[in-house]
Design a protein around this nucleic acid. Structure first.
Lengths: 219, 219
DNA sequence: ACCTGAACACCGTTCAAGT
DNA sequence: ACCTGAACACCGTTCAAGT
């Protein structure tokens, strides 16, 4: 079982999501296709378990993070840790927290995030929503960024900057009367860092949460 | 082309994502598989165009929304409209704003959202991040909720409530010392409405944005 | 209890050939 | 300019048969 998951993650890391097939996995393990089905009932379950397998390290990192005075700061730190893990392995986004029966580490990560909200003056309902919102921002943004860009970008023929630049050029050519917002932000879009975008979005959620909990902004 | 997209959306609506195959689409159109490739270079492009096709109606709805005094309220209204559309057709989440060359309606929707931020006292960078964050919350949450639940739920054998209830039961059985947060929120989780979860998360982002723009909370 | 691998029922995509 | 459909190169999953 361990070996199956390690091999699956290996394939994913080395050659991306399209490389994980039962045939390739069997070949890597030196067995037949059918034998994998003894450990796992479907590809979905394989992904569920592979996700939890990988999340073990993320959980360990999060558990190693020291509690500060400010639970909101600690939530930010955990969210960033999770975000980085998903950027590295975009397939995590789809499977994180999908089946907590099988995903003990996912559940523990959820618990860890939630424990910070216990330090805030909130109702149970607000806590539930707060953690859902944070997980949503992390997973949603990371998944969006992890979308395979058009094959030219992966080819290395075209770098990410040039890829953004092309869109920026097309956007600048739009009618400014009709697209005032696109013109307003096109310079920001051009060459932007995905991580900054994520951090800014996370900050809005955290600011809202801080307000809700009646914590004065720590400037 | 129009006919191809209408047929594709029809298949998606009637029988879900797995029903959209080139063979089924060709059969519905009364032609051969190959002919679809004259209109569309790949399945990805088919999805890109189908998404934009459907977003036409969403854009029309959003354009019909009257501007209120409060741009934040208007942002909420637009976000909810988009959210509802994605809940109805979860595949939109993956393709929205993925290729604005082909997706004019996606771009116009993005513009419409952005125009509300022009009414707020923000920098271009803050506006860019604000719209990204809102789109992230909408798409991220809707995508998460739109994930096909285990087949038993679709069977109708087990309703959504019982599905949540099963998890709730498992969670209540966890050690309260080790999982204080899970215990804190399990009653909220049990039988919760997805839409409330979305609205609460959106509210946190909007509250953060309101704070950033220096708008006093309109109570 | 665990493995094997041929076989089944599909896919997206291509392409020589047609009108 | 647009359509055809057989063929190619794959998939996930099943299952009778083995150890």
């Amino acid at each position: 079982m361990e070996a199956v998951l390690t091999a699956a993650v290996g394939l994913l890391d080395e050659a991306g999501e399209s490389a994980l097939t039962f045939r390739a996995l069997a070949a890597r393990l030196g067995t037949g296709v059918g034998s994998i089905y003894w450990y796992v009932a479907s590809k979905d379950e394989l992904y569920d378990r592979a996700t939890d397998h990988v999340l073990g390290a993320v959980l360990a990192t999060v558990e190693g993070l020291p509690d500060s005075d400010d639970p909101i700061d600690d939530l930010r730190g955990m969210a960033v840790t999770l975000f980085d893990a998903i950027v590295d392995r975009p397939w995590l986004a789809t499977y994180f927290m999908r089946n907590t029966d099988v995903q003990e580490n996912s559940l523990r990560l959820y618990e860890k995030l939630g424990q910070q909200t216990l330090r805030l003056d909130l109702t149970p309902r607000q806590r539930f929503h707060a953690v859902s919102a944070i997980v949503g921002v992390v997973v949603g943004t990371a998944a969006d960024l992890g979308q395979e860009p058009p094959e030219e970008v992966l080819d290395g023929t075209v770098g990410r900057d040039e890829f953004l630049g092309r869109y920026a050029r097309a956007w600048r050519a739009l009618d400014p009367e009709e697209f005032p917002f696109v013109h307003e932000i096109v310079d920001e879009f051009d060459g932007h860092e995905d991580k900054d975008q994520f951090l800014a979005g996370l900050e809005l959620t955290l600011a809202g949460l801080r307000l809700q909990a009646g914590v004065p902004p720590a400037l």
